[in-house]
């Protein structure tokens, strides 16, 4: 299955960038990550947490009226890199069908060549966020 169109477009855009542009883009994504809606704030213990990240990351998903999956993330502002990477996934996957989301391969990020901008640990956290988004999507699909 091909990658969801939005995610593919983001990957292509970042792949063509210089290191400096990649960092600026990550900051822009970090700064535009929406706050967790109020209605989820009391449910943090039911959200998927991502132990692979050294930053506390919480993820929740629900089905929208079109049958697609909508994600909501809670990541502290003190961790802009994790926020930026997770925001890429949020923008790339929001509204996609469950099958599209779970089909995203774990090495999807390779073409972006992010290792020239951030360390391997950050990228490891990135794949952790993806797999927990898949689990959150599975819960939303079953709900």
């Amino acid at each position: 299955m091909p990658l969801p169109q939005n995610l593919q477009e983001i990957i292509d855009m970042i792949a063509s960038m210089s290191r400096e542009e990649k960092l600026e883009t990550l900051i822009a994504y970090a700064e535009t990550l929406p706050d967790l809606p109020e209605r989820f704030k009391t449910q943090r213990d039911q959200m998927e947490s991502v132990p692979e990240c050294m930053t506390p990351v919480f993820i929740i998903a629900e089905k929208d009226e079109h049958g697609g999956i909508q994600f909501y993330l809670d990541i502290p502002p003190q961790s802009p890199t994790v926020r930026g990477l997770a925001s890429i996934l949020l923008n790339g996957l929001n509204g996609c069908a469950f099958e599209e989301i779970v089909s995203v391969p774990i090495d999807f990020y390779h073409p972006m060549n992010l290792q020239e901008a951030v360390s391997q640990q950050r990228i490891t956290g990135f794949t952790g966020v993806l797999s927990h988004m898949k689990q959150a999507a599975a819960k939303a699909q079953q709900a």
Binding site: L23, I27, P77, Q78, S79, T81, R122
Partner: peptide
């Protein structure tokens, strides 16, 4: 920093 974007923020 551990997080490379914090300085820019």
């Amino acid at each position: 920093d551990e997080d490379p974007l914090l300085y820019a923020i």
